[in-house]
Simulated scan of single mutants.
Amino acid sequence: MKFNNILVSQNKGLASITINRPKKLNALNKETIEDLSNVFQTLEEDSNIKVIILTGAGEKAFVAGADISEFAHFSVNEGGSLARKGQEMLFNLVENLSTPVIAAVNGFALGGGLELAMACHFRVASDNAKMGLPEVSLGVIPGYGGTQRLPQLVGKGKAMEMIMTAGMISADEAKDWGLVNHVTSQEELIPLAEKIASKIMRNSLVAITAAITAVNANFEDGINGFDIEIEEFGNCFGTEDFKEGTTAFLEKRKPNFPNN
């Protein structure tokens, strides 16, 4: 797979996506969003890919925001269309991917960059990372799901403060607030993400997909997450992975999941 703004590598079921615009601090422009959408869809359809790690090129930024020059002169309708298309094309796509996605936040994750990290299933960060949603300083609000996902992760009050002040928080603060799961050095960031990915890949990927569906259901309007959990739990009983997992447990051996 070749793209203008991202790099993709694969190794033993693990795919790594690197947003590669270091001179622009990996800012999200239209082409990059399209590239990311295409690569996530391609990897989702590849049965050999078990986990995806998303990061940014260089040591300064994961994604420092959206490319403001592309929409500075948009009309009301164009602005609304930009947000809707971006959410549908990339951010909602990532959140609902059945393949686990880990964001490895290696520096600034601001605006659309933090929104992209929040769309991933969870986040690890380097100790130099800075995160924030500075949109109100530009006279606009987050448009790629930031006003919705940030309160889910850190609570309404913290989210309101971050959005209203347009300030940045450190990696340690992000961990304390529940925005990221782990903080480590820049050098150990990708190895840590890979270590977590290897743990994920030992388990039933069929069950993990069901868990993603159930967890996400709790945040959908009009959906009873408990009902979805019951449905997905029941569906697991009809899978080969369930048969192998329970048999291996009873036989006191490690499972060899057929769908892994």
Rank of each mutant, 00 (worst) to 15 (best):
I102A: 10
A119F: 15
G56Y: 07
K156Y: 00
N26F: 11
L192R: 00
G178V: 06
L189D: 01
E220Q: 10
T165S: 15
C236W: 09
G234C: 02
A72I: 08
Q87H: 07
A83K: 10
L133C: 04
A171K: 02
P258I: 09
I212Q: 07
D46W: 11
T209Q: 14
K252G: 00
T99D: 03
N92K: 14
L7A: 08
Q152E: 10
K50S: 13
D35G: 09
V140A: 11
P258Y: 10
L138S: 11
I223G: 03
A64D: 09
S98Y: 06
G58P: 00
S170F: 06
S137F: 01
S81L: 13
L82C: 10
N235Y: 05
D227V: 13
V206Y: 05
D46A: 15
L150F: 05
T32S: 14
K23P: 00
R123M: 13
A211R: 09
V8G: 12
V180C: 10
G225M: 05
A109H: 04
L97A: 12
D221I: 08
I228P: 00
G56L: 07
E161P: 00
A171M: 04
L43C: 09
F108N: 06
A103G: 09
K254S: 15
E34I: 14
N235R: 15
S126V: 03
E70Y: 14
F226R: 14
E59K: 07
N29M: 04
N256I: 12
E240Y: 15
F122Q: 07
V8N: 06
I163H: 02
G107S: 06
I223A: 03
D35R: 14
G107M: 07
K50M: 07
E229D: 04
I6A: 04
E229H: 05
N29K: 12
S170M: 03
I190W: 08
T246R: 00
L138M: 08
M89K: 14
K199Y: 08
E78R: 12
G155H: 03
A217W: 13
S16T: 15
M164K: 09
E115L: 03
S69Y: 01
S75N: 04
E59R: 06
A193V: 02
G222D: 05
I53H: 05
V76I: 11
E135L: 12
F108C: 01
T246N: 02
G178K: 04
Y144M: 15
E45S: 15
I52H: 09
E78I: 09
G80C: 08
E44T: 10
K23T: 13
A27V: 13
I141T: 11
K60M: 10
E161K: 13
K12Y: 12
L116K: 06
S16P: 00
G234K: 12
A66E: 13
G112T: 06
F62I: 01
F237V: 03
V101C: 14
K60G: 04
M1Y: 11
A57N: 05
L189S: 02
V76A: 09
E194W: 07
G146A: 10
M131N: 01
G143M: 12
I208D: 02
K50L: 11
T247K: 13
V101F: 10
G178S: 06
F237D: 01
T32R: 12
N92H: 12
K85N: 06
S9Y: 05
N128G: 07
V63N: 01
L189F: 02
D127W: 01
K2V: 14
L110A: 02
